Computed example of a mutant assay.
Amino acid sequence: MHNKEQLRTELLEILSTQRQNALDAADTAHDLATHEQSVAETQYDTVGLEAAYLAHGQSQRVAEFDMTINRLKALPLIDFNEEDEIKLGAIVTLSDGMTCWFLPVCGGYKLANDCVVVITPRSPLGQMLDGAEIEEVLQDGREITSIA
């Protein structure tokens, strides 16, 4: 089975890299927006304005990454057993071999060499898994084979 602390570390590294990319993009767009050559010469010259919008959007992405990273760091890593219902933090294996880590954030990320997929309660699979139990057959026909 997969070590949750290692998975969290891997996910935090991915998020940190993406955060840094967004921060770099925001800095670049800000520099472009404030560069002397970006000053509008006519009412139709919008290079500076467009760069300012881009810088703002990238800054919002950085803030979203910060919130996600903090939420992931604060998530208690609970060990589940076969008598437990599936809740946030559970690693679940399905009868088709798919292994999912049920988290409140980061849906769609693949970890552990693409062996574990992060799903959230908002996803269709997450909605089926929330509160389900081992050996339960889901609406899509797959059975829950293990929980950790």
Rank of each mutant, 00 (worst) to 15 (best):
M1D: 00
H2E: 09
K4H: 03
Q6G: 00
R8A: 10
E13H: 05
I14H: 01
L15I: 14
L15Y: 12
T17H: 14
T17Y: 07
Q20F: 12
Q20M: 13
N21S: 06
A25Q: 11
A26M: 13
D27T: 11
T28M: 12
A29K: 14
H30P: 02
H30F: 10
H30G: 12
H30Y: 11
D31G: 14
D31T: 14
L32E: 06
A33C: 13
T34F: 03
E36R: 14
Q37H: 08
Q37S: 07
Q37W: 02
V39Q: 01
E41T: 15
T42H: 08
Q43L: 00
Q43F: 01
Y44V: 00
Y44H: 14
T46S: 01
T46I: 05
L49C: 00
A51W: 08
Y53S: 01
L54S: 10
A55V: 13
H56N: 13
H56K: 13
H56W: 12
G57C: 09
Q58D: 04
Q58P: 01
S59Y: 08
S59R: 10
R61C: 00
A63T: 04
F65P: 05
F65V: 03
M67I: 07
M67K: 15
T68K: 11
L72D: 06
L72R: 12
L72S: 05
L72N: 07
L72T: 04
K73E: 08
A74V: 04
L75M: 04
L75W: 04
P76F: 01
L77W: 00
I78E: 05
F80D: 02
F80S: 02
N81E: 00
E82F: 05
E82R: 07
E83H: 07
D84M: 10
L88F: 01
G89H: 04
A90Q: 00
S95P: 14
S95R: 10
S95W: 14
T99V: 15
W101Q: 13
F102N: 05
L103V: 11
L103W: 09
P104F: 07
P104K: 01
G108A: 13
Y109A: 13
K110N: 07
K110A: 09
L111A: 15
A112F: 15
A112N: 15
A112W: 15
N113Y: 11
D114K: 15
D114W: 15
D114S: 14
V116I: 15
I119A: 10
I119K: 10
T120L: 12
R122F: 02
R122W: 04
P124W: 08
P124C: 13
M128L: 14
L129A: 12
D130M: 09
G131A: 09
A132E: 07
E133G: 01
I134F: 03
E136P: 00
V137L: 11
V137H: 00
V137P: 03
V137Q: 07
V137I: 11
L138Q: 03
L138G: 02
E143R: 02
T145D: 04
S146E: 03
I147P: 04
I147W: 05
A148K: 05
A148M: 02
